[in-house]
Design a protein around this nucleic acid. Sequence first.
DNA 1: CTTAATTATGGTACCGTTACCATATTATCA
DNA 2: TGATAATATGGTAACGGTACCATAATTAAG
Lengths: 336, 336
Amino acid sequence: MPTIHDVAKKAGVAPITVSRVINNSGYVSDHVRTKVNAVIDELGYVPNVIARSLKSKRTNTIALVITDITNPFFNILARGVEDAAFKAGFNVIICNTDESQEQEDNYIQLLLQKRVDGILLVPAETHSQSIELLRKHNTPVVIIDRYVENGGVDVVRGDSESGAYQLTKFLIDLGHKRITLLSGPDTVSTSIDRVRGYKQAMCDHHLNEFVDYFYGKYSQESGAQLTREIFSRKEKPTAIFGGNNLVSIGALSALRQMGIKVPDDVAVVSFDDIPESLSYDPFMTVISQPPYAIGQKATEILVSRIKNDQDVPVEFQEVVFPVELIVRESSGGKVN
Amino acid sequence: MPTIHDVAKKAGVAPITVSRVINNSGYVSDHVRTKVNAVIDELGYVPNVIARSLKSKRTNTIALVITDITNPFFNILARGVEDAAFKAGFNVIICNTDESQEQEDNYIQLLLQKRVDGILLVPAETHSQSIELLRKHNTPVVIIDRYVENGGVDVVRGDSESGAYQLTKFLIDLGHKRITLLSGPDTVSTSIDRVRGYKQAMCDHHLNEFVDYFYGKYSQESGAQLTREIFSRKEKPTAIFGGNNLVSIGALSALRQMGIKVPDDVAVVSFDDIPESLSYDPFMTVISQPPYAIGQKATEILVSRIKNDQDVPVEFQEVVFPVELIVRESSGGKVN
DNA sequence: CTTAATTATGGTACCGTTACCATATTATCA
DNA sequence: TGATAATATGGTAACGGTACCATAATTAAG
């Protein structure tokens, strides 16, 4: 593979001159420029950005550390990231942690070695030592989807608390009292916020005695299992609030197995929508977050951090996207 | 950020010795090793793999160039790639081309500059100059999901032709004659193969006169639009065969808008399943491909190509995964 | 016409690692 | 006991670029 030296030699100039042609920097005569470009084409020379990075200390690469690219929320978010990154001249390395702190740590270590210019992180736990580590190495981070206890980071997320409140209130207004929330891990801010919003709504409507929620996992299995457990109790809920799309789908499939009809026997509502491009007949009443916009915004902030390197320390932002209640069939109608 | 020299200085040894400690290579006394490791921890030294790459000419990074990470087929495939890559010690850069040859070219150029060790490519067109370019630069490629006219590449894909045949035959066995196939772009091997399998099935059952197919795009909009066009003709089909999941969902939504009932008024079948984790009530009769396995296998082949660098030229493989017919409601029952 | 500014090009060193070779010390063996 | 091998460590150069400084040639200015 030819190097800048090969090109220089063949064109009869110094390597630095070729560098100037490639980067359109400094002074180069038209005559030399033409000659050099001709040689570049002839040899099929492609600049080695590794070498460039070593000098410039920039890799033009960012990393997106999420739990699972397979989750529609995250893959749409990833698309928002990729589009914004490409526009800004960055490539994106994708890492799946499956909510495992250990896997997150592994990746952060690798990414530090790779000297990525910045990291978009969905942290596995609310107290993130990853952030401290990255700070120590001057690697900009933007936290997505969740917030953390550590201060001094940019955060871009949806409004889980308000969303949960709205969804719960919606059910209450329909006449539901026994509403069970199947939340995610209690180490994750979204799970906690959703519980908080739910509790607040129950409390505001004097339904404290009916407050009933579980922390589990953000997975189909967790949703299904918790649903089975709930329906094995004496008091059955009249409504189930799934902590995210996977949990809710798990709940629905468990209910179907048990022969319980939705929404006739029990109402089901959910956090996170299934993209309309994937469901031929949207059925679930949901709180919908804008994953594409979240990914895009987070990337823009990260890029600005990367570029502003040594500038005046701009204040850290917390961007909270509003969420939207979408009413469909699964929540059913008024309850007496 | 500390370098190997800083560590060496502080530990009172030469940089090369630190290198030996990091890489567990050569001879290092226990005493020195302990000392060096202590300094590494103290300074928070993280090896710079950029510099390492410059020497070793390995980046431990591969790229996955797909059309759209948002498509469930590709995001599950991406997960298979990421898992296999991580296991082999590689990171994955994701690139979305949206079926645009221009965007593909852009990315290939960037990836060459980045000196990725290999590329997994879903080519936009059947004659791929990307492959020639990569070959010229000695960058291993594995083609996924589609085949190309150029020889001398590894290909990992699903069996579109047989799948389309099975699906068409299934409809024919139900008594359908007027079966319309809404395929993808005619520049893409899967679209062409699906048409071929469909035609073959029609032909084998003496339904040549009913052969009716369209090349469009692999998108919801394309599916919806073609469906509207078809139903504005005098002769309406009794079954629609969507070229992929997005096309089929587009078809379903167009049918719903027109008040045409599925499967009562028209049967609908599709290539590519929606993962069960995303659909609470699977409805569509489909041919299902194994995207995770495809991604995984392709990555394994790519990694072996990368590692075998200068070995005897192993013959190129074409791995064709079998597909599976999954019968659900959308195809309805026997037709008289 | 001298001086200064602009244009054009090149030399050298360095970014952070590691391969290769050299050297020194200790252990092993005939 | 001297020779050989194994162990332990370091010096130097190179990977492929570019920043910085220097120099030469041309143009503009006074």
